[in-house]
Amino acid sequence: MGELQELARKLLADGAVKVVIGYEEGPRGVRPAFITTPKDADRLVFDERCVHNLTMYLTPTRKHIAALGKPAIIVKGCDTRSLAGLIRQSQVKRENVVVIGARCGGVLKDPSVKAAIAEDTVADRCRGCTIREPRLVDHLVGEPKPAPPGKSLVDQKIDELDAMTPEQRLAFWHEQLSRCIRCHACREVCPNCFCVRCLADKAEPLESSAHLRGNMAWHMVRAMHQAGRCVDCGECERVCPADIPLRLLNRKIARVIEARFGHRPDDDPESTAPIGSFQPEDGQEFIR
């Protein structure tokens, strides 16, 4: 058995953890798995189809997972930034979870089909990845992998949008957001969306209807609430049943924050959040 499965088996057998949150083979490709007995550890898989960011299963909103007992979780390098965020925001205590880092060389755009990582198969968010070897971990598994190829298309698309006229941009977003049906799947899979009661679940101030006015408000508010916290794991975009390019919004804001406040999401639980902190000398050229 592989290194990962052996480690999981041991953790469960020793009683160090009660559940290993990882990936297994499902009817339509790889999916999240919750392994609770040593003999089931065989079911675990880890390869380039493991696109899911599992860290949201650690948030206090997932009561049914917490009920299983102390978890171990399999994370990719990128996922550790979410984990660091959850620790930073007091949602997860580092000592309450065993972190198994898996070395990663990028995941697939279409995880339902097995394929090698290449320029045209790799998920866009993996391009330019700098964190292939997770650091915030208790155990590290897998062989070092080469960096995923290619340049981010999202950044390219943002540049295109920035170059458009405001009317064109508005038309673009109207077209995209008109497909939104307000299922809020983007929120539910997001490790940052751990609010006990989301603003969107209240009758005020957001309109819950799936018309363009309500959709614009929801996506702007969500983007604002993600500002400085989004780690671009791309889960919201992956799960959107309407294929709305949500990464464009979050990535744009991340770029604004980096340009203005010099902050990038990292895997350090001690770092400061850009929204929620300030510098007296922050730019204010837009303020009268």
């Binding site: 949008l161 920035d162 405001p166 009317e167 064109q168 941009r169 508005l170 038309a171 673009f172 977003w173 614009m216 702007m220 983007a223 604002m224 500002a227 919004l249 744009k252 804001i253 604004v256 924050i257 203005r260 406040f261 850009p274 929204i275 929620g276 300030f278 007296p280 922050d282 730019g283 204010q284 837009f286 303020i287």
Partner: peptide, 24 residues
């Protein structure tokens, strides 16, 4: 420091508005 915090938030929100095509 309320206005310092507000300033960061508005800086971001203004850019978001522009990105969405809403006239700032």
């Amino acid at each position: 420091a309320g206005n310092y915090h507000a300033r960061r938030r508005f800086a971001v929100f203004r850019e978001l508005m522009i990105f969405m095509g809403i006239d700032p």
